[in-house]
């Protein structure tokens, strides 16, 4: 069978099954279990009303529970276990964590991840803020914004290819086809560099890719926040003689500070999960390992589920403060 046809059939079955569940379960509830007629019509409607929310929620709760909540618990459990040759596993307490902490690769990944966590959100937010503020006042601002926003649509893998071309290196006697080396030689560099293998600094070349992607996101959110600032405050400041820089840093920035925090934390979460870029560009070689890729290595290359799960828990631990903060805010809002 042609793969496209196969795909089409599976699509119809999958989506059809989903629509079918909601339609028939509601029919069953209204027509068979608690029909809204006969002697008990009133009671039946009430009962159906009590059950229906759970009918609506059932697939979601199952999916969320199974695909997000259960794995957290299971990964925690697995981080204390070790697989025994021949199947099964045994409890080993904190051994996996101890083993992980003894590995220099882990510390490299953690150190790099912390650098990513500081630099990517900072630069993305700063560039985003700059772009939002600058494009706010000019006529072609919307076009400019949509072009800066565009990398959001590009996959991390696609971005990796795009930037590998930028960082490409050719031997010195050939013409450079990577922009960075062409510029480097143009400004008096001696020999072309292989950018992605320079220890320590290669991390920044990888981070540049994520900054490039995330700046558009920061810009869109911050641009909306800037527009939301009441005009009176700006007019008043101008009348009082504030110059554009004072206007921006003293009047606008304080009023959008909460949005900046939201943007910052959102990008932080993206950074914590960053995997594809490192996987595709260096695969953690030359001192560029990050936690998510370290974990993937442990799980699927070394087949060490115990240490892999332990490193996943480290990522979870880093996310937890944001998780609590989000839930706290959401609860506050609901009241």
């Amino acid at each position: 069978m042609h793969p496209a046809l196969q795909g089409l059939i599976t699509i119809i079955v999958g989506v059809g099954g989903c629509v079918g569940y909601f339609y028939f379960s509601n029919q069953l509830l209204d027509k068979v279990l608690f029909p809204a007629r006969g002697p008990n019509a009133g009671r039946n409607i009430n009962r159906a009303g009590m059950i229906r929310p759970w009918l609506f929620l059932f697939p979601s709760i199952v999916a969320l529970g199974l695909y997000l909540a259960y794995p957290v618990v299971e990964t925690l459990r697995m981080s204390f276990m070790e697989r025994v040759p021949g199947g099964g596993s045994q409890f080993v307490g904190l051994d996996n964590y101890r083993q992980m902490l003894d590995e220099p690769k882990f510390w490299e990944a953690l150190k790099n991840n912390i650098m990513w966590l500081i630099i990517v959100p900072a630069f993305s937010t700063a560039f985003g803020l700059l772009a939002a503020q600058l494009t706010d006042r000019i006529k072609w601002g919307n076009i400019a914004k949509s072009l800066i926003f565009m990398p959001m649509a590009i996959s991390f893998v696609g971005a990796a290819v795009i930037w590998k071309l930028v960082y490409d290196t050719r031997p010195i006697d050939q013409e450079q086809i990577g922009v960075l080396n062409a510029l480097y030689l143009g400004f008096g560099g001696e020999a072309p560099r292989t950018w992605l293998t320079i220890p320590f600094w290669n991390n920044f070349f990888l981070m540049a890719v994520l900054v490039w992607i995330q700046t558009g996101f920061a810009m869109v959110i911050l641009s909306a926040a800037l527009r939301g600032i009441p005009e009176e405050t700006i007019e008043a400041a101008i009348l009082d003689g504030a110059n554009p820089f004072q206007l921006f840093f003293k009047i606008k920035m304080p009023q959008i500070s909460s949005t900046i925090v939201v943007v910052w934390t959102t990008i932080t979460i993206v950074v914590l999960k960053v995997f594809d870029i490192v996987f595709a560009m260096t695969n953690g070689q030359w001192g560029t390992q990050v936690l998510a890729n370290y974990m993937f290595d442990k799980l699927f290359r070394a087949n060490d589920w115990g240490v892999g799960s332990a490193s996943a828990m480290v990522i979870m631990l880093l996310v937890t403060p944001i998780l609590i903060w989000n839930v706290y805010n959401a609860r506050k809002e609901m009241r």
Binding site: M50, R52, P53, W54, F56, L57, I61, L64, Y67, L68, A69, Y70, P71, V72, E74, T75, M78, I269, L272, K273, F275, A292, M295, F296, L299, W305, G308, S309, A312, M313, I315, M316, V319, I322, L323, N326, V327, A330, R331, M334
Partner: peptide, 27 residues
């Protein structure tokens, strides 16, 4: 819809928003 536990479910959804999917791979 009004039903007991609604607020709790909403909070749970907000919490799950940021759970890294890395945790889910092996389980």
């Amino acid at each position: 819809m009004d039903f007991p536990g609604r607020a709790l479910l909403v909070a749970a959804v907000v919490g799950l928003l940021v759970v890294p999917l890395q945790l889910a791979l092996i389980p």
